[in-house]
Amino acid sequence: MGSLRALRIRFIGLLRPARAEEDFAAELESHIEMHTEDFMRCGLSRAEARRQALLHLGGMEQTKQAHRERRTLPWLETLAQDLRFALRILIQHPGYTTVAVLTLALGIGANSAVFTVAQAALLRSWPAREPERLVKMYSKTPQGSGDFSYPDYLDLAAQSSSMEGILASSRRAKILRLGAESQLVLDDLVSPNYFSVLGIDAQLGRTFSPATGAAGEPVVVISDALWHRVFNADPSLVGKQIWLTGRGYTVVGLLASLLVMRLLSSLLYGVKPTDPLSYAVSAALVVLVALVATWIPARRAAAIDPMQALRTE
């Protein structure tokens, strides 16, 4: 509590330095006078007594300086001085200032634009026609919150009037068998209305119809990414059977890819995301740009005559 109070007083001390300075000078002077008189009583000359008094004090200016530092917040004063100096220099060189400000503005602007797009496209949005109208539902019970059971979902879907449609999905890993090899894939087990609620169409074949589940036939719809990665974009895949964790499923459709995904994979054409060469090249490029960006101003600064630099200061 005491130190907080001290901080406040020191901050206020910044605003009115003159009075406190005079006040302390008077206090020190009276201290020195009293001490001088005491020394004179011991038989010293006035000059020698005063000298001894100052010696015992540890110096007039040193004491004032220590007092001043305790009175205000010296680092804040230094900071304010530095800021004033920086501002003065910036005003003196409007061209340089403009370029620096523009560079920063462009950099910050471009960064936030890229991240806004990336966040909206990759992190926030669902692959739906109108993602802003989607909501996610949780169940909340005294035991905690979590997912709904399938019967609960059926009741919700049947009785809800405030939602246009309610879909259910449950994600798990499955093993996809490809000839002699097998591969782990993520599989979403979804309600038949999944695609119609989300508003996603198939680029080949069809998605699920409301009758799909009732018939009990094991069918899958495959994502564009998996189609490219695993099935080499084979157009005859629709209608064939694939094996997921020991069970055969008929591929009924192939989803259209998202615009962003298509853009990204077209950029990555012929390059794996883990290609060491592309990492090395991009790192080298960044280092090169940084070197050039530091070397040019350094060279320019070194070319200036020191006398010239001092005169500008």
Binding site: G2, S3, R5, A6, I9, R10, F24, E27, L28, S30, H31, M34, H35, E37, H56, L57, G58, G59, Q62, T63, A66, H67, E69, R70, R71
Partner: peptide, 27 residues
């Protein structure tokens, strides 16, 4: 070192443990 006393006094005053006022000494 008498000089070191004054910053210490100032600190105590800022912390609210002492207060100061001008007055007249014994001399």
């Amino acid at each position: 070192n008498y000089g070191t006393l004054y910053p210490a006094l100032l600190k105590l005053e800022q912390e609210g443990f002492i207060r100061s006022a001008w007055g007249v000494s014994e001399n």
